[in-house]
Simulated assay, not measured.
Amino acid sequence: MITRRQNGSLYTNIQNNIATIEFGHPASNSFPSELLERLTKELNTIKNNDSVSVIILKSEGERAFCAGASFDELVAISNLEKGKQFFAGFANVINAMRTCRKLIIGRVQGKSVGGGVGLAAACDYVLATENASIKLSEFTIGIGPFVIEPAVTRKIGIAGTAELTLDATSWKNAYWAKEKGLFAKVYETQKELDDEVAILSEKLASYDPEALAEMKKVLWEGTDNWNDLLAERAEISGKLVLSDYTKKALSKFKK
Rank of each mutant, 00 (worst) to 15 (best):
A76Y: 04
Y207V: 03
P32Y: 06
T20C: 06
L43D: 12
D72R: 11
N227Q: 11
F90W: 05
T161D: 05
T129R: 04
R98T: 14
D194Y: 07
D228V: 14
L240V: 09
A231M: 03
T99N: 11
K47Y: 01
A76M: 04
E62C: 01
K172A: 10
F146Y: 13
K111E: 09
P145K: 00
S28N: 11
H25Y: 09
E188M: 10
V152T: 08
N131K: 11
E221I: 14
E214F: 00
L166C: 14
G118K: 12
A122C: 15
S78E: 08
E138R: 05
P26T: 05
V197W: 12
V186S: 07
N17D: 15
G160H: 10
F183D: 01
E81W: 00
S201R: 06
L200M: 05
A128F: 07
E221W: 12
G157F: 08
V117W: 07
L36D: 03
E221Q: 15
E42A: 08
I94E: 06
E202S: 09
I158Q: 06
A64I: 03
K216G: 02
E73R: 03
S251G: 07
E232N: 14
M97K: 11
T20W: 15
Y245S: 13
L10I: 15
F86M: 02
L80N: 08
Q85W: 00
S112D: 06
T140S: 07
T3L: 02
S53Y: 00
I2V: 02
I105C: 08
C100L: 04
V197G: 10
T169K: 09
L36G: 02
V197N: 12
I56M: 00
W171P: 03
L212G: 11
K180F: 03
G8P: 14
Y125E: 15
V186D: 11
K102M: 01
N17A: 15
L119N: 14
K84D: 13
T20R: 15
E149M: 13
N225Y: 04
F31V: 14
L39E: 12
F139A: 10
S33R: 06
K255T: 07
K255I: 02
T140G: 02
K84I: 13
L57C: 00
Y125T: 15
N227Y: 02
Y245I: 13
G238N: 12
M97T: 12
A205Y: 06
A69P: 11
T169L: 04
E138W: 00
I143R: 07
S51L: 00
I2A: 01
L57F: 03
N173P: 14
A91Y: 00
K111A: 05
K47N: 07
I236D: 14
M97W: 07
N7H: 15
Q15K: 15
F87Q: 09
L212D: 14
L74R: 05
A162H: 02
A128D: 12
S237T: 10
F71H: 05
A96N: 13
R154D: 11
G68H: 05
F139M: 09
K135H: 02
T45S: 06
F23P: 12
L80Q: 04
G238A: 13
A91H: 05
S28I: 03
F90C: 05
S78R: 04
V126E: 09
